[in-house]
Design a protein around this nucleic acid. Structure first.
Lengths: 230, 230
DNA sequence: CGGGATTTTGAAGGGGCTCAACTTGAGTGG
DNA sequence: CCACTCAAGTTGAGCCCCTTCAAAATCCCG
């Protein structure tokens, strides 16, 4: 993720650490920290709302289940990012789940306090508003893609999104440790299909693999797969 | 749509007329009205952002295209509802389109003014925040459904959503005039498939047809189709 | 070394899309 | 009032992408 300082640059600002100054004092006084292990459930769809969370360290997947076996990963929250904020103004029940996919520390403030903060701190409310609008644009693009884009394009877009959010390692691999199952759930397809697609993309030199790590070898061709003409 | 007066009842509040009192004075001074005809495009994906709109009368579909022929309808904006607000904090380009599906009048205020209003009117900003969070929950449910729910369930859910938003006529039909093509785009499937599904549901006495109008004859069974066990 | 979880590969089946033809209906002009 | 036209509704057939199921191979960690 690019470093940014301006509020206006919302496209690359996920209410990240640069934005925290707006509500940092409030949080410091009220937050509680949790140490979370890999694959530890932070909250589940159907659970009563505890509050709004943000990631201190580690990575959290925000996902929604279908039946017992299937899920769709809606987004990943990495260091500095907020999650659980969709519960704002709701019925007090989480409509999505949050699970750590890397060990880390998450903080939360209870919902009442968070809402009070919003009412008192207009700047913070405004930033959150911008962030939610951005969230919505991303979500609706994903929705459209699931309806019309073939799996290959969705996998390509998923990888590009991961690269944009997590950046690259020194060797040029996408800087996140992600199980193939989670990648499949993020792309909205089955494990086997995603596996086959990745194999094919590797054959065609669009990707390069090293264990679980994935390197984008031909960004332009990958990007082209996400376009409508294909 | 149920009539509501409390802000807290956000699930049935779409920044509707009951909420307008917060920003009505500001709007009255600055809004411009447009008369729109059936199937008239209000703005298109890729257009520069003009401002934020709301519906005075009529019905507007908010949709996103894929290629030349395909689209997905994300939501409908009916009387009193806001649309175009996803452009907030964006890059100045609409990421979605808005098209009238019924003759009516839409108003808009330019984006700068709207953002100023948000900064000055904390109550309004707070309400919009709640609305966006609600919007996000709806959007993410739709996303999940497209990934995992079969077409029959999606059509069922689409009809239930339409009933909730537009209510029923005196005869018990869903109170909106909607082309089958638009219904299909709303459910995220093709015209033909949706047609067949509706035929089947009519055969099984879950629905009742009269011309283009649709009546839900067995709500419970229809609802069951949207559940995961099916 | 053993065993459970991933990875890899194959084969089968179906749900939904595509295409194409026919029917119906509404509007239009003669 | 009727023919004409064009859009929308209706139905059938084929097929393909993706899922599902199943099994073998490999990895990994105690």
């Amino acid at each position: 993720m690019k470093k940014i300082t301006l509020i206006e640059d919302i496209e690359t600002c996920f209410l990240c650490k640069n934005c925290l100054k707006e509500w940092l004092p409030a949080i410091l006084a009220h937050k509680k920290n949790y140490k979370v292990k890999r694959s530890e459930v932070i909250f589940n769809e159907g659970d009563p709302v505890k509050g709004v969370f943000f990631v201190n360290s580690g990575v959290v997947k925000v996902h929604k289940r279908w039946g017992a076996e299937k899920e769709l990963i809606l987004r990943f929250a990495s260091s500095g990012m907020i999650f659980g904020h969709r519960a704002l103004g709701g019925d007090g029940i989480y409509s999505i789940s949050a699970t750590a996919i890397q060990e880390g520390i998450v903080s939360y403030v209870d919902m009442d306090f968070f809402e009070t903060t919003l009412r008192v701190n207009a700047d913070f409310a405004y930033k959150l508003l911008m962030f939610l609008a951005y969230d919505l644009r991303v979500s609706e693009r994903k929705t459209r893609n699931l309806a019309h884009m073939p799996v290959k394009g969705r996998v390509a877009e998923a990888l590009i999104n991961l690269k944009d959010q997590f950046g690259l390692t020194a060797e040029g691999f996408i800087n996140i440790e992600l199980s193939r199952q989670d990648l499949a759930s993020f792309a909205g397809a089955t494990y086997e299909t995603v596996f086959r697609v990745i194999s094919e993309l590797t054959q065609d030199d669009l990707l390069e693999l090293s264990g679980k790590s994935i390197k984008i070898a031909n960004y332009d061709k990958l990007l082209k797969l996400t376009e409508e003409a294909a």
